[in-house]
């Protein structure tokens, strides 16, 4: 009823309130953005600074005594190299398998001629919505002989229902005439897939490849659960977790006060060395993500928009 009056007062305040909001808004997001990058910067300057200063906690905003020997000495830290290899291998192989399978299956399920297509498509997609649970899943992997086995990183991830939906939706948007003309020219389904569908789906395949690779690289729980008696197969994330945790335990031990001073000094030294080591391993674990990150941002929008589309 007194809407006009309200509007009037609102408009009057707008310039001032709006400006205040603009300032607050910019400040808020600057702080938020800073909180998202400062920790990585902090880790980085601590790994390239003089280790004695790092140990004293004096490196807070800028590096002092820049050197890269921590990264070189990481070669001597047991198991990090192995874990790095495992993580790289599973990321490359696992992503490749997932992308090939998702694109092929995504193509097949667009084919209305397929025997009982709707049933089989649902058979795959419904697996997104139920889960037998952690323990039955674990026992299943034991039964298949996939525990303490590198294949446990690769095979369960080959069929990724969500990615299949994304590829299917994308392929459905490719003009059907392209495929029909190839069919008339006598091309088989495999030829059509490799010569027509695959090249035309590169954007969506790049999207699922990047997200799949990040998922593989970040994967921690499968290493934790399935590789219990094969430390050689731990992923880098698992190795990092162990190093981070060892440090915590040493700290707790010191706090207990149940050790003599010589042991404490030795533990202290180990703890402090562990600080540099854990920062360096953290950086090694983050750097690959930060390297592909600029490429990822290109596919953000696409991935999200497609994610909003249902199968």
């Amino acid at each position: 009823m007194n809407k006009t009056k309200q509007k009037h007062s609102y408009t009057q305040r707008e310039s001032l309130g709006g400006q205040a909001f603009n300032v607050f808004n910019a400040l808020f997001f600057l702080v938020f953005a800073l909180s998202c990058i400062f920790p990585f910067y902090y880790l980085f300057i601590n790994t390239i600074s003089d280790n004695t200063l790092v140990q004293k906690g004096l490196i807070n905003f800028y590096p002092v005594g820049v050197n890269f020997k921590n990264y070189l000495s990481l070669r001597d830290v047991s198991d990090v190299g192995t874990a790095f290899t495992v993580s790289i291998a599973r990321t490359v192989l696992g992503t490749a398998l997932m992308v090939i399978a998702s694109s092929f299956v995504g193509y097949l399920v667009t084919k209305k001629e397929m025997w009982k297509r709707t049933f089989w498509y649902r058979f795959l997609i419904i697996t997104m919505y139920f889960n037998a649970g952690l323990i039955p899943g674990y026992l299943n992997m034991v039964m298949l002989g996939l525990t303490n086995n590198f294949l446990a990183y690769l095979i369960p991830g080959i069929v990724a229902p969500f990615n299949i939906i994304l590829v299917k939706t994308y392929i459905e948007s490719i003009p059907a005439e392209l495929e029909e003309s190839a069919l008339i020219d006598g091309a088989g389904y495999l030829t059509i897939f490799t010569r027509i569908i695959w090249p035309l789906s590169v954007p969506i395949l790049a999207t699922i490849a990047i997200f799949g690779a990040v998922g593989h690289w970040n994967s921690f729980t499968d290493s934790l659960i399935f590789m219990q008696s094969s430390p050689k197969l731990y992923t880098l994330q698992h190795r990092l977790y162990i190093y981070l945790n060892t440090n915590t335990n040493l700290g707790a031990l010191l706090g207990g006060g149940s050790v003599d001073s010589a042991t404490a000094a030795q533990i202290m030294e180990n703890t402090l060395n562990a600080k540099v080591i854990k920062y360096t391993i953290s950086m090694v674990t983050i750097i690959p993500i930060l390297l592909v990150y600029p490429f990822m941002t290109r596919y953000f929008q696409k991935g999200i928009m497609l994610g909003a589309v249902k199968g």
Binding site: L43, V214, W217, N218, S219, F220, Q237, H238, L240, Y241, L244, K278, Y279, S282, T285, I286, I289, Y293, M296
Partner: peptide, 9 residues
């Protein structure tokens, strides 16, 4: 895009 282990780090 970083793992929970890295968030913990």
């Amino acid at each position: 895009f970083i793992s929970w282990v890295l968030v913990y780090a």
